[in-house]
Each structure stands twice: as C-alpha cells, then as structure tokens.
C-alpha cells in the first residue's frame, strides 16, 4: 500500500509522460512486486495504449523476470496460475522458454489455456502447433479467449488449418471472424456454408450477418427452405440487411414459417426496411395465414 502511494507519481511520469525511469522503481521484495503488479494491471485495464504496454513489457522483462521464473515453478497451483496471468498481461516474451518447460509436467486445463494465450502473443511461431497438440479439448469460451487477441497473420494460418481443429475451436474461430467484421474473411466464411456440420453453417450465417455484406444472394437461397429452423432464422435475419425490393418474396415465405422464432424475425426484418410497412400492409390484406398476419400487425403496431 505504502509503495503504491509513494511511487504512484514516478510511475505516472515514466509510463505516461515519457520521462526516464528512476532506479527506485525497481521492486526489492515481494510486497513491492505485488504493488507493481497492481499498478501495471490498473494501467492496462484502464488505458489501451501500445506505448504503455511496450514500457510495461520492457520493465517486466528486465526486472520481474527472475521473480516470475521462480513462481511458475512453484508447487502451489494458485501461485503458478497468478504468475502465468501476469506473464500474459505484461507480455513477458523472455519467459516463453520457461513456460514451455512447464509442459513436461501434467498441467491442469486452466494452465494449458493460459500457456496457449501466452504463446499466442509472445511466441506466435509455435502457437498453431501447440494449439493442435493440446492434449485436452478446451471449451468454446476458452478457445475464444485464446483466439481473441490473435494477430491477423496467425489468424490467416489458422483458417488454412481449419479442418484440423477441434470442433469447438472451429466454432469459436467463426465467431471471432464475425466480431472482427472484416470483409476479407468473407470468402472463407462463404466456403463454410457448405460444411457438413449444421452448427458451423448456422454460426457462419451469423458471422456473415455481423459483417453485413452479401455478394451473391444465390449462394444463400437454399437456406430459406432448410430443414433446420435455426438456419431459416439466420436467413430471416440476414435478409433484413438487403433492400426489400430483392428480399420481399423470400421474407414473406419466412413470415409463414412453421417456427415461431423464424416468423417473428421475418416480420422484424421486413419492418426494419424503409418500405417494409407497405409490404407488411399489403401482405395483411392479401394473406389468410392468421399467425403471420398477427405477427405482421405486431410489428406495424410497434412502428406507429
């Protein structure tokens, strides 16, 4: 506590104001290291800036290396975990070799995840190999955590190896491409639409919806009559991004779908369009599908 109070200003001038670091910043004992950890963590959490990160990395590599080196060998699981977390956060690439040595022992799942995260930042060359070699399958959440901060070049390599990855990892990869919202992945995603696994197809549709670009509608049309309602639902969503003049007939088909969620989404997608109201109104006048009319009315009611 006292360390934080007294050194706060010095750290600020080093990290933010670009002054020269003074040697007094170097922690001398465990509690001072803990204080430094806390200071670093709060900077990293509150400010996203590559320069600050670079300074933290430099400092950690220089002065905290020995401390963590001994800690990751600790027999206490929680000590090792804490050290691995910090190595990842401070991007201490100089400890990568020591990390690799840990793999000789039997590791817990959490340790493996953390190691993969470290490789994904500090040791990119081996990352994919390690990911494929990983003895246990991680959960989707963990894969997402591991893949989230991956850099584009590694991501590209991973896409090429897609078929070798465990299914959970494939799912996560597609989700990641969705949140990145970069059109460059579109052609890869479109190729996934032919995948045998329904979950992959559904997630791909979702990712494409996130990106929001459709180049060739014909590729997607088969999904409107898919046996799987989730695929039809995603189509109802996806079609909402296109002009109503093109999608009107497809969406009306989905409005009469047997599945409640698909009908609701179709009505919403039509309603979202500029001329959607007119389409819905004329649909109500001409159709005799009671449920679909009800749904259309609800959307109209909300808009007015």
């Amino acid at each position: 506590m006292k360390y934080i109070e007294t050194k706060q200003k010095e750290w600020y001038s080093y990290l933010i104001e670009d002054r020269e670091p003074s040697s007094t910043l170097i922690p001398n004992n465990e509690s001072e290291v803990k204080a430094v950890e806390e200071i670093f963590s709060s900077y990293l959490y509150n400010i996203s800036d590559s320069e600050i990160l670079a300074k933290i990395k430099l400092f950690s590599n220089n002065y905290l290396k020995e401390y963590y080196r001994s800690r990751i060998r600790s027999h206490r699981w929680s000590t090792r975990m804490n050290a691995l977390y910090h190595i990842f956060d401070f991007q201490m690439d100089e400890l990568v070799e020591e990390c690799e040595q840990l793999e000789i022992k039997k590791l817990t799942l959490q340790e493996q995840v953390q190691l993969l995260k470290i490789y994904s930042i500090c040791h990119k060359e081996v990352f994919i190999t390690k990911l494929l070699q990983c003895p246990t399958t991680l959960t989707e959440y963990e894969y997402k955590k591991v893949l989230y901060r991956l850099d584009p070049t590694v991501l590209e390599q991973l896409i090429v190896r897609m078929d070798d990855l465990p299914l959970e990892c494939q799912y996560s990869l597609i989700d990641i491409l969705g949140v990145k919202r970069e059109p460059q992945y579109l052609s890869f995603l479109e190729s996934c639409l032919h995948n045998d696994d329904a979950e992959i197809r559904i997630r791909t549709l979702k990712a494409i919806f996130e990106i929001g670009i459709i180049t060739d509608l014909d590729k997607y049309l088969p999904f409107i009559t898919s046996q799987i309602w989730e695929e039809r639902l995603m189509m109802a969503k996806l079609l909402g991004a296109l002009p109503i003049s093109i999608t009107s007939s497809y969406l009306q088909e989905l409005l009469e779908d047997e599945n409640w969620w698909v009908r609701t989404q179709a009505a919403k997608s039509i309603g979202r369009n500029k001329d959607g109201k007119i389409v819905l109104q004329s649909y109500i006048n001409s159709s005799n599908d009671r449920y679909a009319i009800e749904m259309a009315n609800q959307v109209l009611g909300k808009e007015s």
Binding site: R76, W77, S78, T79, M81, N82, Y85, K145
Partner: peptide
C-alpha cells in the same frame, strides 16, 4: 486450498 490466493478470475 487449491484456489487459495488466486488473484485473478476473468
């Protein structure tokens, strides 16, 4: 005991 003093929980 295993989780004792584990600092970070995402």
């Amino acid at each position: 005991r295993r989780q004792y003093k584990l600092e970070k929980q995402d």
